[in-house]
Structures are given as structure tokens and as C-alpha cells.
Design a protein around this nucleic acid. Structure first.
Length: 557
RNA sequence: AACCGUGUGUUGUAAUGGUAGCAUUUGAGAUUUUGACUCUCAAGGUAAAGGUUCAAGUCCUUUCAUGGUUGCCA
């Protein structure tokens, strides 16, 4: 048996080393710990992928834990959207969703433990004073005058904090570590603060809340998480993470950091996304232009594409900026495999086939997906008057133009070859109607005409066409890193053409019956999905992405 | 400046000290009843300098570049 060398990322190598050494009896348990204060975005997508896939690879489990230690910003709306999005992505967490707030009692006890060990103290210093004490990265800090407060006094004050005897900001509980540590986080970090605020789950039970550093690691430990995978920004927190676990004496979860994924033209700052929503640059968190999972779902991206995107972009520790084109190529590749082909004319111009008998019509079969024989076909009505795309007819075509022009032949996809004979114009010289003749022997699939037509056009028969609204989406920003320019706001790079509405496109009747989960390809145009805002009276389709267009690219040169 | 990280084609990511590969992108061509898809070919890379070694992207040293760290956010 020859062994194929399998390349592993650094997290997998670390886990395999742990398994080989018998750590935790080879158990692998990860967690995804979002704060419920915003919608999940492409960056979370990567974290979800890494946590769930890594555990699954080693037969382990993954918890979903809401890191809800800041009642001021958190809300149940987000708790729900987050669960919906993770499920949509295709992952299922272990058991019920968990909440850091469920551990508030234990965390309080942990704090008491530290106080009793002389490793935490209550400090009434003001915010400014504490900042002074902290020093700077190059300058050691100084001890708080309250650092050596006796244990009994700390205990009494801490309980008073809990009982609501002190207002917000009056005092905090601090860990007693090392005010001269090179790592600023080790300079007696705050672990509990007073916040007389209503919590989305614990209500008014608490008026003190633990800080992230005093909640996250311990929550991992309580859940017996073996591998706590997080992004690089928490690297500096690892010594603190370990310090608390060690000094409280609880299960030794270990943190490993990876570089978070950055994607060109997408922003992932919750605050900046929220501003786009609040100031109506987009229609909501699920606007198809947003980098949120909800947005990408509404845009028509498939969950498997997102998973594959995460896989293909890999796991490493270096900063990265993934090209948007890579995401697009994956989205196209998956959609190409499964999308139903239909014809929709975005900017119609009427074509009259003068030698086609008036009043006659026929039904012509069109393959649902040439990539997949088993997808079958549907029928399109054909008759004397049809619409084609305005841009597919030119009076004075350039070289290598395969489309319709006077005296030129084209194939109507799935139908006949036609030749343009004449046309009508309005008073401004714009073409309003094209008159053609068709070749009865050139019928699709049984062509005996011998006529060669290089161009193939999509079309929709006038009488049976239905009106639909199209929303053509493009990237939200005109710059790949809109929020990385000094002195410029990311809003300055807002792409005003990121949404173009086509109110009256002409679609074949098939679209009247599609569901909102059916991926569609509007032939020669792009991939679309029915929007949730559609009603029986008004159908709306979102453009997921265009088809590649080499002709347009050639034209630009 | 100090501390902690990170440097492989345009971008992303592989390579057990032993042939620098894959995808994307770009370009050329073939094919095509979607100027799509598919196929073929091509372009393009180990930050720099030294060292160890039969052999260095990989190990060591120095330099350079780059990210993070001075919230009662997570």
C-alpha cells in the first residue's frame, strides 16, 4: 500500500500531534463563539468553516456559543440570524446553542477564587487613572494604589458591586498580574465592570459583567473545548487565556490563532456594515451586496460555494487579501452545474419574422441544463413576433460581430436561423423594430438548411412573455480595500452603480413558476435567483453574477 | 521605539532538508445552437545578504518589509 502524502495546515498538524501524544484521549472539540451583535459575514464564514471542518475531520464536535458578555450591544435578533446562517451554510453544532451568560454564576465564583488567592483586586481608579497606570508598550506601568487591598476588603467590595451598591464605572475588578509585562494585556487587566444594563437573556439579574478575557477562555474550559481556534487578533490574549485557566485551576483548553480571511471589495467591520444599513446605502443586513451570509444567500450564492471558497483559500497565519475573482469563479462553477437555463431579454427590441404565418405558434424544447442531461427540458413558445436584446442588433457592426445586423444571419437559440431584412426607426433614428425572415428548415435539432450562423441569440416570444423586474448587482465598493485608505472614509468608495434596477425585462413564461431556491441562468446574461420580495403580481430576480463576457472584454480594448 | 507575529508568481495556497506544484488572473489558440462551459498552450515566484550542508523555500545569523498591541468592546 502506497501512502499518499496529504498536505495539512498548521492547525491540523498541531491537532495530530496532540492526538498522537494522547492528549485528552485524542478528543477534538472546537467551538464557534460569535457575539450576537451583528450578522455573520464572510469573515465569520471562514471561522465557522475552520472550526466545524477541523473538528469533523477528527471525529470531533463543535459547539455554538454566543459570547454575550456585553448587554449593551447584543440582541436576540442576532441570536436568531446567526443560527439560521450557520445552518444554511450546512453545519450543525453539538446539542443546543450555548451562551456565555449561562456561565455568569460560575464566572463570578472564578473571580472570587482569584480574589481569595490574592490574584484580583477591586480598583476604584478612574478610567483615565488606569490608562496612566498602564504605561505604554515601551514603558512599564505603575501599580495601582489599591493593588494590595486585603482579600476581605476585595471580597466585600466585589459583592457590593454585584449587589448594585455602586454606579457604572465606580470601580472594577482587576487581575493582579504584572504592571511591567511587555504584553499590555497582562498589566492588571480589568475582568469585571459594572453595567446596570438589561441583558437579552439574564434580564436584570446582573449589574456586573465579565470582560471578554475573563469569559472566553473559562467558557471554553467549562465546555471542555480542546482546541479553541480564533483569529490572529487574539494572539496577544493567549498568555492571559492560559493565566486564568491555570490560576483558577480548570480544564486546560488551548487557543490557536489563524489569519482571518480578507476578501477584496468586501468589508467585515460590524460597525461599518451597520452604518451601511442605518444610512440606507443598502436595503438591510441581507442586501445582496452585503458581505453577510444573509446577503450572499439572497444574492444567490450557494452554501457549497462558500464552503469551497473557504477550503480553497486555505488556512495560514499570514495576512491575506483574496481576490474577488476567485470567489466569483467558484460561484460560477457551481451555478453552471446546477442552474436552470432560461431566456430573459433585459432591453427588448421587437423582431417581426415576416415570413412566419400570422396567428401560428409552436412550442420548442429548450434543455434545462446542457451540463446535466437528467435535468430535462422545458418548452418555449415561438411565433411571428419576438423580442431580442437591443444590443444584439447593430446597423454598422464592427469586425467579428456575430450578432444580428442587416443582411446577417443568426441562430435563435433552440429555434430557427433568421436573417435581418429591414428595420424601423423613430424620429431620433433609434431602431424600434427589426424585420427578418426565417428559414423553416433550420429548426433547432433538425437543421437541414445548410446555413451557417456564427451568432446565437436568446429571445422571448412577445405574446407569452411576462414582465419581470431585474436587480443587477455589482460589487459594493469601487476599491478593493475601501476601509484601508488613510484620510478617506470607506463610504467615499461606495459604488453608485452597485445596484441597477431593470423594471421591465421580458421573460419566458417558465419564470412564472420558479421557486426562490432554484438557481437560474439567464442565457448569455448571468445567473439569477428569485428574490424574496417577489409577489404573484411582480416577480423580482436578483443577479447573482454575470456570465464571463469575452466579447465585452474585447470591445473595451 | 519595545514586545508578539508574518514574508513563495497578480492573488491565495502547497512542497517530510532532495524535481518549486495547484487554483485564480492575464495572454494565445481549439471547440461551441450560451462570445458561456470545456480543452490546449503560454506568461509569472521562494524579500535581501551571509552561513551550515553533498543538497536550503525549508535550518542558523543579520538586514529589509509588513501586520498586531497603549477600550470599563469582542
Amino acid at each position: 500500500m502506497s501512502e499518499v502524502y496529504e498536505s495539512k495546515n498548521f492547525i491540523q498538524e498541531k491537532i495530530e500531534a496532540d492526538i498522537d501524544s494522547g492528549k485528552h484521549e485524542g478528543r477534538v472539540h472546537t467551538r464557534f463563539p460569535p457575539e450576537p451583535n451583528g450578522y455573520l459575514h464572510i469573515g465569520h464564514c471562514k471561522a465557522i468553516y475552520i472550526n466545524f471542518e477541523t473538528a469533523a475531520k477528527y471525529g470531533g464536535k463543535t459547539n455554538l456559543r454566543f459570547d454575550d458578555t456585553n448587554p449593551v450591544t447584543e440582541d436576540t435578533e442576532y441570536v436568531e440570524s446567526i443560527q439560521r446562517d450557520i445552518k444554511w451554510l450546512g453545519y450543525q453544532w453539538e446539542g443546543d446553542p450555548l451562551f456565555t451568560s449561562d456561565y455568569f454564576d460560575q464566572l463570578f465564583d472564578f473571580a472570587v477564587t482569584l480574589i481569595n488567592k490574592g490574584l484580583a483586586y477591586v480598583d476604584p481608579s478612574s478610567s483615565d487613572e488606569m490608562a496612566q497606570q498602564k504605561g505604554t508598550p515601551t514603558q512599564a506601568g505603575t501599580n495601582s494604589p489599591y493593588r494590595d487591598r486585603p482579600v476581605e476588603e476585595n471580597l466585600k467590595l466585589f459583592h457590593e458591586m454585584r449587589e448594585g451598591k455602586h454606579p457604572d464605572g465606580a470601580m472594577v475588578l482587576r487581575a493582579k498580574i504584572d504592571m511591567s509585562a511587555p504584553n499590555m494585556l497582562m498589566r492588571d487587566p480589568i475582568i469585571y465592570r459594572i453595567k446596570h444594563a438589561h441583558h437579552h437573556r439574564t434580564g436584570d439579574k446582573w449589574c456586573i459583567y465579565p470582560m471578554y478575557d475573563f469569559a472566553h477562555g473559562q467558557s471554553d474550559s467549562i465546555e471542555k473545548i480542546t482546541h479553541s481556534l480564533c483569529s490572529l487578533e487574539f494572539m496577544h490574549h493567549r498568555p492571559l487565556y492560559d493565566w486564568f485557566i491555570e490560576n483558577i485551576g480548570i480544564f486546560p483548553s488551548k487557543q490557536t490563532e489563524f489569519a482571518r480571511m480578507n476578501v477584496a471589495y468586501m468589508i467585515t467591520s460590524k460597525r461599518k456594515l451597520l452604518k451601511l444599513v442605518n444610512e440606507n446605502f443598502v436595503e438591510g443586513w441581507d442586501d445582496p451586496r452585503m458581505s453577510t451570509l444573509s446577503g450572499m444567500r439572497r444574492r444567490g450564492y450557494l452554501p457549497k460555494s462558500l464552503r469551497r471558497f473557504c477550503e480553497v483559500t486555505g488556512v495560514a497565519k499570514r495576512d491575506n487579501l483574496i481576490e474577488f475573482e476567485l470567489l466569483e469563479s467558484i460561484v460560477r462553477e457551481d451555478l453552471n452545474q446546477s442552474a436552470t437555463r432560461v431566456m430573459v431579454v433585459q432591453d427588448p427590441i421587437k423582431v417581426v419574422i415576416t415570413n412566419y404565418e400570422e396567428g401560428k405558434s409552436e412550442l420548442l424544447p429548450v434543455a434545462n441544463n446542457p451540463q446535466d442531461e437528467s435535468a430535462g427540458h422545458h418548452e418555449m413558445q415561438f411565433s411571428r413576433e419576438i423580442y431580442i436584446e437591443r444590443g444584439d442588433f447593430m446597423l454598422d457592426p464592427p469586425k467579428k460581430y456575430f450578432r444580428l445586423a442587416p443582411e446577417k444571419h443568426v441562430r435563435l437559440k433552440g429555434a430557427y436561423i433568421i436573417k435581418a431584412d429591414s428595420y424601423k426607426t423613430d424620429e431620433n433614428g433609434n431602431v424600434t423594430e427589426v424585420h427578418c425572415t426565417y428559414f423553416p428548415e433550420s429548426k433547432s435539432g433538425q437543421d437541414t438548411s445548410g446555413i451557417k450562423a456564427k451568432g446565437v441569440l436568446h429571445w422571448v416570444e412577445c405574446a407569452s412573455a411576462i414582465d419581470v423586474e431585474l436587480k443587477l448587482y455589482d460589487r459594493l465598493f469601487t476599491d478593493p480595500t475601501p476601509d484601508k485608505h488613510e484620510g478617506k472614509d470607506y463610504i467615499d468608495f461606495y459604488n453608485k452603480d452597485s445596484l441597477i434596477v431593470v423594471p421591465n425585462a421580458k421573460a419566458e413564461s417558465y419564470l412564472a413558476h420558479v421557486g426562490s431556491d432554484e438557481s437560474l441562468q439567464f442565457m448569455r446574461k448571468g445567473y439569477f435567483i428569485k428574490d424574496q420580495s417577489s409577489s404573484d403580481d411582480k416577480l423580482v430576480f436578483n443577479r447573482t453574477i454575470t456570465l464571463k463576457d469575452t466579447w465585452a472584454k474585447m470591445q473595451k480594448k
